[in-house]
Computed example of a mutant assay.
Amino acid sequence: MRDRPARVDDVHAIAASMPHVKRIEGPKGNPIYQVGGKSFVYFRTPQRDAEDPETGERYTDVIMIWVESESDKLALTQDPKAPFFTTHKFDGHPSVLIRASRLSEIGRAELTELIQDAWLSQASRRRADTWLAEHQR
Rank of each mutant, 00 (worst) to 15 (best):
residue 14 I to Y: 00
residue 56 G to A: 08
residue 66 W to V: 03
residue 38 K to D: 07
residue 52 D to F: 08
residue 101 S to D: 13
residue 30 N to C: 13
residue 42 Y to K: 13
residue 75 A to N: 12
residue 30 N to G: 03
residue 80 P to Q: 01
residue 52 D to K: 09
residue 102 R to T: 09
residue 109 A to P: 04
residue 84 F to Q: 03
residue 134 E to Y: 14
residue 70 E to N: 05
residue 97 L to A: 07
residue 1 M to N: 03
residue 56 G to C: 04
residue 70 E to H: 10
residue 137 R to E: 13
residue 91 D to C: 06
residue 104 S to K: 09
residue 127 R to S: 11
residue 54 E to A: 14
residue 71 S to W: 10
residue 91 D to R: 14
residue 90 F to I: 08
residue 135 H to N: 15
residue 34 Q to E: 14
residue 88 H to N: 15
residue 130 T to I: 14
residue 8 V to L: 04
residue 76 L to A: 02
residue 75 A to R: 07
residue 75 A to I: 05
residue 79 D to H: 10
residue 123 A to L: 03
residue 57 E to I: 14
residue 73 K to N: 07
residue 126 R to I: 11
residue 2 R to M: 11
residue 42 Y to W: 12
residue 3 D to N: 05
residue 68 E to H: 14
residue 44 R to C: 06
residue 101 S to L: 05
residue 94 P to L: 10
residue 130 T to K: 15
residue 29 G to H: 12
residue 50 A to V: 10
residue 31 P to G: 03
residue 106 I to S: 01
residue 15 A to W: 00
residue 128 A to E: 08
residue 96 V to T: 02
residue 57 E to S: 15
residue 85 F to K: 00
residue 120 L to C: 13
residue 5 P to L: 12
residue 50 A to Q: 05
residue 137 R to G: 04
residue 106 I to G: 02
residue 95 S to Y: 02
residue 4 R to Y: 09
residue 23 R to W: 07
residue 99 R to T: 01
residue 101 S to I: 09
residue 111 L to I: 11
residue 118 A to P: 05
residue 128 A to Y: 08
